[in-house]
Computed example of a mutant assay.
Amino acid sequence: MILHQSNNLTFFTPAESDSLGALFYDAGISAGFPSPAEDFKEQRLSLDKELIKNKEATFFARVSGQSMIDAGLDDSDLLVIDRSLEPANNKIAVCFLDGEFTVKRLKVDKEGVWLQPENPNYPIIKITNENDFVIWGIVTNVIKKVY
């Protein structure tokens, strides 16, 4: 279910699931030399349990844009956002800024708050008293498609 859509992010709520999860092989997938097949241990894995720590405060949002590519957040990636986590310096946050949602790295010090993109083609945004600004949630995970 879509909750909200803006130019930069589309928000979803996690769907209820009674499934036991997908099959998970707890042997590690070698990125070097193949390992023997008999080492695989089959069990069930729930991505809800792996990615969502506070179900009531967790939302998904799809990224639109390139401002965070150097942090590994690409266009169309799915973000897992926890609204119960405290904002802190260097965390990646979803923010509501002057009528739009955006995702940026927080830079906080005694002189103020900045939203730092992870792409040199985008400017750092200094938050002032004139801004309509809310830190909406902290990004905890990113889900990517592999093409």
Rank of each mutant, 00 (worst) to 15 (best):
L85A: 05
D48Q: 07
L73H: 01
G137T: 10
V94L: 13
C95Q: 13
K126N: 13
L106E: 01
D70R: 15
K104N: 11
G28V: 02
Q66V: 07
F33N: 06
S17R: 02
G99C: 13
V113I: 14
N141S: 05
P14L: 04
T128C: 01
V139R: 03
I52R: 12
V139K: 06
P34F: 06
A88S: 03
I138W: 02
R62H: 04
F33Y: 11
G72M: 06
E42P: 07
G99V: 12
T13H: 02
I127A: 04
D77S: 09
D74C: 01
N8Q: 15
L73P: 12
F96M: 09
Y25V: 00
K41A: 14
S46R: 15
S46W: 15
C95R: 12
I92P: 02
A88T: 03
D98V: 05
I124S: 15
F60C: 01
A22R: 01
G21Q: 10
S84M: 08
N54E: 13
S30Q: 03
D82N: 12
L85I: 07
G21M: 07
V139T: 09
A88P: 00
C95G: 11
I135A: 13
A31M: 08
M68S: 02
L73D: 06
D26H: 10
Q43C: 09
I125E: 11
D18T: 00
D70N: 08
F11D: 07
A27T: 12
T58A: 05
S17T: 04
T128Q: 00
